[in-house]
Design a protein around this nucleic acid. Structure first.
Lengths: 283, 283
DNA sequence: GGATAAGTTGTAATTAAATTACAACTTACT
DNA sequence: AGTAAGTTGTAATTTAATTACAACTTATCC
């Protein structure tokens, strides 16, 4: 809980002098964080130790520590809030809101993601004989993107957004193959089937999906991203961005695990693109 | 500007010892705000006055004031500094860094994007007879995603990641058609050709690309996202996320412009997916 | 209603932390 | 090589915060 709220909540348990301190702080919090204990004591018309005791009562280590907490409480006023787009929003409004809710979603994802599972997923991927990315609908483009990334690593990688091809690919998989199934809800029937088939054929199945979903149950490893999505819009937006970032993380982990020499290879891939591009100096 | 960003930005203007201080603070900002100047000096292996001078250089009144600012930066919506992934980063480190640099990129994009152009692009899209999304390589998955979004609007929309198909499509375009070309660098030759061809056939060409690039020159409307990308990694990561968010914004603007009735249509599309999914209550 | 104990507050002493002044050193330029 | 500008550290000083303790207030019990 943040300190400001805490002060308000525990205002009853304060003594007379402590209450004076609380009042002064609540009245000018911004001033408080730039004051010394002496200045604040004077403002509240109490002694310095009283202020100090007040701070300790709020479970801080002392006055400087209290100021730190207070500063954070004040800064927290405007974090990236998942503000919904509304009917009469103009371009500025909806642009800002979408940026902010995407950032809020990434922030949430960052806090929820399980590093341990990421590490294991990277493990599995680095040792894969072949990597397949499967997704349907909106998740197909995430799979597509993942393929583009891992392809640069010179690893056998495929990506299908066609259930027939996915099924054939899953049936043909074997031990050492890794299948990554991407689905925000984790309730897409066809994809659950694919995951099950791949598992039956001894492939390792990584699910980029909701924890505790039917798809998750079919997977060897579940990378879940708990992203609060604005369901009013009926389109996966923030959740899909979080999935992409997760792919970025896996790809990064992959390159780091493979070591320096390997990364020189990446440069080659990038350099090979040069022929298809205008040089920077050209314009 | 927040202190953390400030440190990263002015890292060049620091002296050797100040740099040591900066490194320690960036590595453990949370620890820093609970340390004394002596502890921090020891960690950075410099003297206490050096730390103090470092604080002043960042326009703070001294060490305690610096800690206050730092605390606010950390609590604030934007502790998102574009920190580069390094050789010996563990999973926690690179996961955090990628999330943060993506968020930093979005923050930058939000500030740079031109609302006016977005508004005009939405205008153009709502009036389009047909919308085409073209991208190659990493941008192909962005185009793919855009198609998925706009398809739900019941608008004629196509997406090609094959230059032959793109070319044929561009040649067949006519007035009222809108072609969206996606390229981070804006220097992909083939895509520039496509844009030129589409223009010659009276289509409106929207470029999601770098301002002032060869591709931008071929477009009717340029939506540029100035995203500082970590080029060391040789993979488009943050830039592509920003592109996706831009697509989200265009799609949102589109639905808002079309009005309430239209949005009921979206629900239909969403409901139609239900048959292919497990119900929530099923598990 | 007074005595005592528990709790509250302030003064003064102490300790800890941060800052300043200055000297030594390093670097870059003549 | 010499000098000036800039950088860094040591030691002294100042400032701020905390502690110890005493005075006072309030509540409780006989």
């Amino acid at each position: 809980m943040n300190v400001l709220e805490k002060i308000v909540n525990s205002v009853n348990s304060f003594s007379k002098s402590e209450r004076k301190v609380a009042d002064v702080i609540l009245a000018n919090p911004q001033t408080t964080i730039h004051s010394s204990i002496a200045a604040l004591a004077k403002m509240a018309d109490v002694s310095e130790p009283t202020v100090n005791r007040f701070c300790r009562r709020l479970d801080t280590k002392g006055f400087p520590d209290f100021k730190l907490h207070l500063a954070q409480s004040l800064a927290n006023g405007t974090p990236y809030v998942n503000r919904h787009v509304e009917e009469d929003d103009g371009p500025e409004a909806y642009t800002a809101k979408i940026f902010e809710s995407t950032m809020a979603a990434l922030d949430a994802a960052r806090q929820n993601v399980d590093i341990n599972t990421i590490n294991r997923a990277v493990d599995v991927l680095t040792q894969a004989k072949k990597i397949s990315f499967f997704g349907l609908g909106a998740s197909a483009s995430v799979a597509h993107d993942a393929q583009n990334k891992f392809f640069r690593f010179n690893v056998p990688v495929v990506c299908f957004d066609d259930i027939v091809m996915q099924r054939m690919s899953a049936i043909n998989s074997s031990e050492g193959d890794v299948v990554v199934c991407i689905s925000h809800t984790g309730r897409t029937k066809n994809l659950c089937d694919i995951a099950a088939i791949a598992r039956e054929n001894d492939a390792t199945v990584i699910g980029v999906t909701a924890y505790d979903s039917p798809l998750a149950k079919e997977c060897t490893l579940v990378l879940s991203l708990d992203v609060p999505e604005d369901t009013d819009m009926y389109m996966p937006m923030a959740s899909r961005v979080a999935q992409l970032v997760l792919i970025d993380i896996l790809a990064t982990g992959f390159t780091l695990r493979r070591g320096t020499k390997f990364r020189e290879n990446l440069k080659k891939v990038k350099d090979s693109l040069r022929g298809s591009r205008f040089e920077k100096k050209d314009f």
